[in-house]
Design a protein around this nucleic acid. Sequence first.
RNA 1: GCGGACGUGGCGGAAUUGGUAGACGCAAGGGACUUAAAAUCCCUCAGCCUUUGGCUAUACGGGUUCGAUUCCCGUCGUCCGCACCA
Length: 876
Amino acid sequence: MASERYNPREVEPRWQKHWNEAKVFETDNDDPREKYYVLEMFPYPSGRIHMGHVRNYAMGDVVARYKRARGFNVLHPMGWDAFGMPAENAAMKNKVHPKTWTYENIDSMRKQLKSMGLSLDWSREFATCDVEYYQRQQHLFLDMMEKGLVYRKNSKVNWDPVDMTVLANEQVIDGRGWRSDALVEQRELTQWFFRITAFAQDLLDQLDTLDQWPEKVRLMQKNWIGRSEGLTIRWEVVPTNAHGDLKDITVYTTRPDTLFGASFLAISADHPVAKEAAARNPEIAAFCDECRRHGTSVAALETAEKKGMDTGIKVVHPFDPEWQIPVYIANFVLMDYGTGAIFGCPSGDQRDLDFANKYGLPVVPVVMPANASKDEFKITDEAYVGDGIMINSRFLDAMDTDAAFEEVANRLASRFIHDQPQGGRKVNFRLRDWGISRQRYWGCPIPVIHCEVCGVVPVPKKDLPVKLPDDVSFELPGNPLDRHPTWRHVGCPQCGKDARRETDTMDTFVDSSWYYARFTAPWEDAPTNPAAADAWLPVDQYIGGIEHAILHLLYSRFFTRAMRETGHVGLDEPFKGLFTQGMVVHETYSRGEGHGREWIEPAFVRIEEVDGRRLATHIDSGEEIAIGSIEKMSKSKKNVVDPDDILASYGADTARFFVLSDSPPERDVIWSESGVEGSHRFVQRVWRLISEAADTLRSVESKPAKEGEALGISQIAHRTLRAVQSDYDRLGFNKAVARIYELVNALAAPLAQVAAGKADAPTVSAVREAVEILIRLVAPMTPHLAEECWTLLGNTGMVAEAGWPVFDEMLVAENEITLPVQINGKKRADLTIARDADQTSVEQAVLALDSVRMALDGKVPKKIIVVPQRIVNVVV
RNA sequence: GCGGACGUGGCGGAAUUGGUAGACGCAAGGGACUUAAAAUCCCUCAGCCUUUGGCUAUACGGGUUCGAUUCCCGUCGUCCGCACCA
């Protein structure tokens, strides 16, 4: 057989067409086989796919193809996370409608994904900006509203006065808008919220059940939810004429044990008491304004000095009517955590200590380490925040901190002021309700109507969808929906009078919070078909970037609960298995220094090795170029490799195989030209080895050898099968690749023999069987190559529809094993012995070894440790 | 500051989670084939020594163990998440 080179440009489109025509990857909801739902986080249609997409979708595709071969009914869909700001930015910059821009991008990215040969069910594809999708999202919103999971409240936002829009925290850079460079203001706006805090405890508790999630992600979510157990304590205000009818101030604390160390109360500048004081006193008002101006940028927080201002108000210590404590307004107290008020215990909290030292407030140590001495224990510049023994705390003295906590909690619960307990146990969460209002055009319209008579009226479901108008302009700043001449004017659904539509649209995170459920029945009129959703969900394997560890995954977990409450699904947790893959990174190249530095794309750089060091030169000019650090592929550093170029020159199989090789999938993979060439060599090699022997192989039956010279061939094939299978089960793609290399290396010589006509009949049969195992092992990673080789061997049907091979226990089992023999923990010899040899015979055989006898030199060993089928250690 | 992860050849990484450290790939060097190149194939490739052997090596220093890359304590370094959270 002639061995022309394997040509992916011809082969790959051909097989993609075959798969498509046979609808191999379209999934039937009524298929009775066991289900398997594999999903990769869907892409934002930015215009072109990048290598990160290639890696993400290659991994998901391996899982999908592998599980399909294992006999599962696999759901593997794809869609587009298509709403969001970039489309509006493009509209402003290039005068193109967001819709046009988005759908054109989707078209070109779909083409790119299809050229990767992914086994996706394209019949279920949708974009979140499809009316059919966001209509159902509006339906969900209304259902959630009915269940009290949606509400409006005033909330502070970052307002860009030039662009006339709300900015996310990430869009505020040094206090200025990222586009307009205008000073950002804090504004109070009425915004829509999802009541995610209603599920705070459940979202926390259920993390323990997600045992197929990375520990890291679970921990990040746990910290984000941030549960703390403490006490609210009411402090009686010392009555004076100055403060009207203010009776008490409630603080939240997790350290009630330190109550006798209290030396001040601190309240937020937004606390009602602070606002009232500000109204009376211009100096306080100015201080509150200053506090509000800070607190926006992260950098400002880091360096911000602890500042406070005495309100003149005094409160009484809960356990001592004679003890009065001043109330400060402090810039470090947050209104939206706890009660917006704290008591400061300087000896037990560094921040409180800094504050007390600055304003000359008392510092009384109340907790000391268990081994410290009361007389020597002092607090000056460093607070003691640990647990320990109570001191200077009257009835708490000598208790440990836990007991003191309990004692204070119990005493305050049974003391009443103004007819209410003075203290109560309180669980607090860091998690806040999810603000979803965006003053933007390209998003899902919030389906409510504002009527002057009836108030906020939900749009009746029969009137859905609330469609985005197409005739909008982006000439002026602000939300085009606000300026639209007709869209916002509408009759009130209740009273019929003139009313106006809500012009806020939803945060795009809402769109991605339930798409996985929609895929289970995307044709359905309701948001989901509950039966289909319950049958498919949870997603068995979800794959995506670690950057979504908190928000997207937490919001999706919330949405599943909200959909359960509203009857759209019957479960809590959307993703059973989660895998967070690493990035694709690349060396950077540049010439020049400082501001004149110019980054060079890898495509223009040639790398050579001269005298043992790597040298980069510019392909056109021959100029030497500096090799920089390895970083995430980004446009700014120009260290980007375009998947299109790779697919065009090497083909999809090479690209897929490369991104799966070498690095463990959760870690970053370094893209290198030589690495890709290595993968390409592998593809070519497999093709060449098989095609050269194909004529002979085709003429024999595929049959493993159970004895004789060919036994080794069948053994390694079946052992590799078992190993790769378990690697795929654990997403160990890089290990699977290594084992497949080993198998190919082992089959190279026998295949050459077959090609040369020098192999006997049983060997040819065994080789064919081994090659057919190999083909099915590589098929999930390099599916086109696998189909081509499969056909070449004269098989009918497609590998994509062939089952997974079953390894033969007899061939996998080792009858003789080679045990390493150690003397005092150092390897000195090997012992080959029957696998099932008992301890005594192993010991005897070991003692009979020359090297062992020499090492013993006639002495009797102290001990012989035999670990069955592992190792022998002789202790002298 | 709080929380977490990681540290193995020139490089990416293996090591069945306490049992032969360095699989597999990349890079490099040598050779074969060829008029030549490409492609392909074969060999070498942690370091050191007195080389059919031996010693030292998994960031560094200790510990537990017959045996430690793996477990424990400390030190150094790198990366990630959160951050005025009371």
